[in-house]
């Protein structure tokens, strides 16, 4: 009894020092990078100058295009194990090239799905002052009806009856009947895997086609609906439309 206790006392501090301060690492991690390419149909989106035509023959220019991507995770087929990004909140802003890509560490595996929310989950909408991507300074927060604008497009159109021919679609609302949060699940082209390996970076290229905002399931004609700046029916319709705007065009495993 006595010797074994003494022996234990001797090795115990060593055990604590070697392992005590490390986080438990169960497996190796690699890097995954998500890159968003905003388009209108198949053309790269250009802010300010290029004139586009929507499915109703209405022409418009885009001056702002921003949306939140949150709760990003990689998935496996039929298995509960997923790689979940911590503190996963990103504001993708066509006007800020640096915002179109972000990376995170994921556990080694061969993943076959990518999922995320368009918007900011309801918890963070009601948790007080946030920072980083969620800083209200980013002009994506409604101050009169607390909550994030999940996605925003601003521009002009000759078909708009508003001052300066403005069009503005600020899509938000996180609770109850007004919830515009949409869960997006994407697979990869050509049955490709995202191969996460230690020391390597896999890149997922995601195309976001703004043309989807106008149609399916709901028709949004500029002449009738040039502005949406509140939670409610129109916000939800546009969210339903844009929930179809993402597709993965390529996966590059380096």
């Amino acid at each position: 009894m006595k010797p074994s206790i003494k022996y234990f006392l001797l090795i115990y501090p060593a055990f604590l020092l070697s392992g005590g301060c490390q986080k438990s690492i169960t497996s190796q991690t690699g890097t995954v990078r998500l890159t968003f390419r905003n388009t209108v149909k198949t053309n790269p989106m250009v802010l300010g100058t290029t004139s586009y035509t929507n499915p109703f023959g209405e022409t418009y220019k885009i001056t702002k295009f921003k949306y939140y991507i949150s709760n990003v995770r990689l998935g496996l087929s039929g298995l509960p194990t997923t790689a979940i990004e911590k503190e996963s909140y990103h504001l993708v802003d066509q006007g800020l090239p640096g915002s179109l890509s972000f990376s995170f560490e994921a556990v080694e595996n061969s993943f076959i799905t990518l999922s995320f929310l368009i918007g900011v989950d309801s918890t963070r909408n009601v948790s007080g002052a946030q920072t980083g991507a969620l800083d209200p300074l980013n002009d994506m927060f409604w101050t009169w009806n607390s909550g994030y604008i999940m996605a925003k497009m601003e521009g002009t159109s000759p078909q708009s009856n508003q001052v300066g021919n403005k069009i503005e679609y600020h899509i938000g609302g996180f609770s109850g009947a007004n919830n515009v949060l949409r869960q997006i699940g994407l697979t990869f082209p050509g049955s490709k895997f995202v191969e996460i390996r230690k020391g390597k970076t896999s890149e997922i290229i995601i195309e976001a086609d703004f043309d989807k905002w106008w149609q399916t399931p709901a028709d949004v004609k500029i002449a009738d609906l040039p502005v949406c700046t509140t939670p409610g029916v129109l916000s939800k319709k546009i969210a339903d439309n844009y929930s179809d705007m993402f597709k993965v065009t390529d996966v590059v495993n380096n």
Partner: peptide
């Protein structure tokens, strides 16, 4: 309309 005391000041500051 305001869900949390911390985001309350944003309303009068920007109105």
């Amino acid at each position: 309309g305001i869900s949390h005391i911390e985001v309350q000041p944003l309303a009068p500051i920007t109105n």
